[in-house]
Write a protein that binds this DNA or RNA. Structure first.
Lengths: 239, 239
DNA sequence: AAGTGGTCTAGACCACCTA
DNA sequence: AGGTGGTCTAGACCACTTG
């Protein structure tokens, strides 16, 4: 694997923090020690450290050193859906059986309302897919996907029962490079109630998502409506 | 102001994208053109561009160029609380009158349950503050704050009615450098219902937050419980 | 083949912290 | 004063895309 040097150093340091070689509130060795240790330039090492800082594993302190701030089980994890993990990966990791039921699979033209909501240009052809996803038979989320029709030619309802991304990556050689997300809480719609076990006055967590492919073109808008018990989202911010 | 060069370039390019000098799906000038334009080294320019990419303003494409992916009103913004903006800033921007009522202000010792929830070590002294925050008289969120008591000496209920961060920054010369967050949706507690206008079967959006100061020490755990109508969180992810 | 972004190096100077 | 991280430069080579 032709991995970048900074990537290797990043993984190595991250592993050492997770394993306890460096622990909470320790200082990492200094930059000059680490560059000597890894036999790389200072810039390359700094890039790796800055990635660790982005992950909130570490906090560099000017004039003092680089302090570890990662804690095992920092925010103790409940068994709930992480926003970054795929549905199937989450299920596998927790020993649950995932299943997907395609409720809708149709081509639509993007009208003005849809354009404002999704960010697609008016008039473009979209493929609309609605899927209910369950764990051990319990409906946990409803996915509303809109794909640029031209980008997903060949997609069938059968494929949509599995992973659309796998299809896009292996068949269409497409990669998601960037995505913008928004999380809100909304009152459950009648549709939500009919798909998931919810009462009309319940709320759902809604994650909207715009994805851009390697061409820099937005090709997907997704709205995932989560059963409130199944939603958890972790993130980090700096500065 | 001794701002960094990359910071200036970053802001300039960001402004040009927002103003429409470069628009959605355009390519930026090439790196060599931009380095000439700004009279800086390639590394410095690349750092600025990489920050724009982190913000999903731009997507660099190997061998082709750097494409703008920012859209005005991409995910159309509703009038709702953003997770990154402070409560007062949000109110001001939307012409609403913010108010805060301190419901609790007391010192507690961190027990095992609290330690697991918050990430503080067992036995440390904490200052617990509960505040209800309203916009135009309507209660929108309840803040449960736990501060390392030693870090916030001198804090009073009167100060807590305003901005604790302002106190920490100007009086205690403390800065938040990193924070880890988690967002979940929970059933409203009796306390939530009594503070905000909610029924027992309603949900609240909960944002938990651990903050680290410039010493790399966690000094704050906050749990903000949002009225569902007042919650919106925007974020970006790459790769 | 030419042009683009991606990675890496070596060396310089600065700003901050501790003593 | 000495050590640490923060910024910046100049130049090299590589990998990908396009004609």
């Amino acid at each position: 694997m032709p991995r970048a040097i900074y990537e290797g150093i990043y993984r190595d340091l991250k592993g050492k923090i997770q394993e306890g070689t460096y622990t909470y509130e320790d200082f990492l060795p200094t930059e000059s020690e680490l560059t000597a240790q890894y036999g790389c330039s200072r810039n390359t090492l700094r890039r790796a450290v800055s990635m660790l800082a982005d992950d909130a594993y570490v906090q560099p302190m000017h004039g003092r050193g680089v302090r570890v701030i990662w804690q095992r089980e920092g925010h103790s994890a409940q068994g709930s859906l992480s926003g970054v993990e795929s549905f199937v990966e989450f299920a596998r990791r927790n020993g649950l059986t995932p299943s997907t039921s395609v409720k809708s699979f149709e081509q639509v033209t993007c009208g003005s309302g849809l354009s404002r909501r999704t960010g697609f240009a008016e008039g473009v052809e979209l493929l609309r897919i609605v899927r209910v996803r369950s764990l051990d038979g319990e409906a946990r989320q409803v996915d509303h996907d809109y794909f640029l029709a031209s980008a997903v030619a060949g997609l069938t309802p059968e494929i949509a029962e599995g992973s659309v991304y796998h299809f896009l990556e292996s068949e269409r050689h497409m990669r998601i490079l960037t995505s913008k997300r928004r999380i809100t809480v909304q009152l459950a719609t009648d549709e939500d109630c009919s798909y998931m076990d919810l009462d009309p006055y319940n709320c759902v967590a809604v994650m909207e998502n715009q994805s851009f492919n390697s061409e820099g073109v937005m090709f997907e808008y997704t709205q995932v409506r989560y059963h409130p018990d199944s939603f958890s989202y972790n993130l980090v911010s700096r500065r």
